[in-house]
Design a protein around this nucleic acid. Structure first.
Length: 486
RNA sequence: GUCCCCAUCGUCUAGAGGCCUAGGACAUUGCCUUUUCACGGCAGUAACCGGGGUUCGACUCCCCGUGGGGACGCCA
């Protein structure tokens, strides 16, 4: 359809950590670029020298990298292009498309407040519009000489035709009196410079679009296509912000969400493909389309995010999970556990844990006590056997028998664990059931204390029968001994 | 206040005039399964904002109302 090469961009301002809404905007741009074999670019909008901070730029870039959305060309920093913007603005002044304004901020502010008081739309009074101030009349700001009549309209790829009466639009400031350009101006200058073909952004920018269209015309530059995405809302249905939800991408990473889970959740906020809920990155790239993007806002629903996280956890590669655990969750492990994270034992446990946990933090919490070699302190006060001393003695007798049987299978240390000795899940099952029959116990009588001591975790998720064959025999026997002594 | 946008279960959504007795997913309720927790399986509760048109026929198209959101900065 459109033969123009697709070039899209994500243009965050480094005034805070990467916002989760920004991630979705970046994602939709990224998907669109990949699908059309186009370029996904990043531009740092740091013209607000007061609030922009380098650490936020670093945060944004590292978060995007974590999510797998890197730029296809060098990053453009607006703060490095200040003279360019000033030159272009002065040129527009000379062409009569903009003008110098010597009104002070205080004057403009006072006028605005008066208009609000009078119940009118707060707009600049255009005091300097026809004064033709010279370049020497410093300090001055440069304002757009916006047409007074007619209408400015554009066709949004998601919403269709949107039109604004020009009389409602302000002579907005392009260059501040300190020489620093403003957002609405630099956006257009840079989108032209970067040859952006599609501007895909949040719908809070719809009202900026007519101002920007004026600038494209003033610069005699071809206009890109616009697509305005619906907002992501908090539980209160208002624009998602720190007040009504967790907005920092880092927070989700720290909580243990897999990046692909976060992306999958975000892509479904405002976009759908029939009844499909789960998508891999490849599927998203293949199936994404702007036509199926929703027009109304979407509430950020943490429960569903968690469910999606669990689904992706099941599918993740075990080796990769270990790597992420080492990199991002090392604090969740004891020194010993951390050192055995690279072992075959650790890797063998992962598949048994994957269906049971949703977050990497949970995975770490489950794994840590299993990898520890010593005996983990556990609180056994809730065990049922505490209610009946005779029963407790009988259970311990059975467990002691079990230990002896396991020991003989291990052949005095010839095998590192029960699996190596030929005892698998089914083997554990039959051995335990046989013991229960012999001692007149129910399976649960035996497994409850055994599970607590062997896992070393008050609410271990892994199946005991899965764990027993895999855990190094040294650990199993030590923990069974601890159980017998309790 | 002015301008712009929007409106299907609690939430994310399917629905492009008859396929709708409105489908799926999350959450929720009940049951089953079960070595704790969980997973899983089965079943259930739950929605087209209101009013006018257009049409043989509107969840779907148009208008009005109502409601919600966004924007009105020398922030981005």
């Amino acid at each position: 359809m459109n033969s123009l090469p697709v070039r899209v961009r994500f243009a965050p301002s480094p005034t805070g950590f990467l916002h989760i809404g920004g991630v979705r905007t970046a994602l939709f741009n990224f998907l669109y670029a990949r699908q059309h074999q186009g370029k996904f670019l990043i531009r740092i909008e740091d013209t607000d020298t007061e609030r922009s901070e380098q650490r936020f730029t670093h945060d944004i870039m590292s978060s995007l990298q974590w999510l797998g959305m890197g730029a296809d060309e060098p990053i453009l920093y607006q703060s490095k292009r200040l003279p360019v913007y000033q030159g272009i603005a002065e040129d527009l002044v000379s062409k009569g498309l903009a003008y110098r304004c010597t009104c002070t901020e205080a004057e403009v502010e006072a006028a605005r407040e008066q208009l609000i008081k009078d119940g009118k739309k707060p707009m600049y009074a255009r005091t300097c519009r026809e004064k033709n101030h010279a370049a020497g009349d410093r300090p001055y700001a440069i304002r757009a000489k916006f047409p007074l009549s007619g209408a400015t309209s554009f066709t949004d790829l998601i919403r269709g035709e949107i039109s604004f009466p020009n009389e409602d639009l302000d002579d907005f400031v392009m260059i501040r009196s300190n020489g620093v350009p403003t957002y609405n101006f630099v956006v257009v200058v840079d989108d032209v410079e970067m040859k952006i073909s599609h501007v895909i952004r949040g719908d809070d920018h719809i009202n900026n679009t007519p101002k920007q269209i004026f600038l494209y015309d003033a610069l005699r530059a071809p206009k890109p296509l616009f697509a305005h995405l619906p907002m992501i809302l908090g539980q209160d249905k208002k624009k998602l912000s720190k007040r009504n939800g967790e907005t920092s991408t880092n927070a989700y990473r720290e909580q243990g969400y897999l990046p692909e889970a976060l992306l999958n959740f975000l892509v479904r906020l405002g976009w759908s493909h029939g009844d499909q809920e789960l998508f891999t990155m490849e599927e998203m790239i293949k199936l994404f389309n702007l036509e199926s993007v929703q027009v109304s806002g979407a509430v950020f629903n943490t429960e569903k995010l968690l469910w999606i996280a669990g689904e992706h956890m099941k599918k993740a590669d075990p080796g990769r999970l270990i790597r992420i655990l080492k990199q991002d969750f090392s604090k969740a492990f004891s020194e010993v556990s951390l050192s055995s994270l690279d072992s075959g034992y650790a890797l063998s446990l992962i598949p048994h844990l994957q269906p049971k946990v949703k977050l990497l933090s949970e995975l770490a919490g489950q794994l840590d006590p299993l990898l520890d070699t010593g005996v983990r302190e556990v609180d056994s006060s809730a065990l049922k056997w505490n209610k009946d001393e005779a029963q407790k003695a009988r259970i311990k007798e059975a467990i002691a028998g079990l230990r002896t049987e396991f020991q003989s299978r291990i052949s005095g240390g010839a095998f590192e664990n029960l699996r190596a000795a030929g005892v698998d899940h089914a083997g554990i099952d039959s051995i335990l059931r046989a013991k229960c029959d012999r001692f007149g116990l129910k399976l649960g009588d035996l497994t409850q204390p055994l599970r607590l001591f062997v896992t070393g975790h008050p609410s271990a998720s892994i199946g005991l029968f899965d764990l027993l064959p895999l855990m190094p025999w040294n650990s199993v026997s030590a923990r069974m001994d601890a159980c017998l002594k309790s």
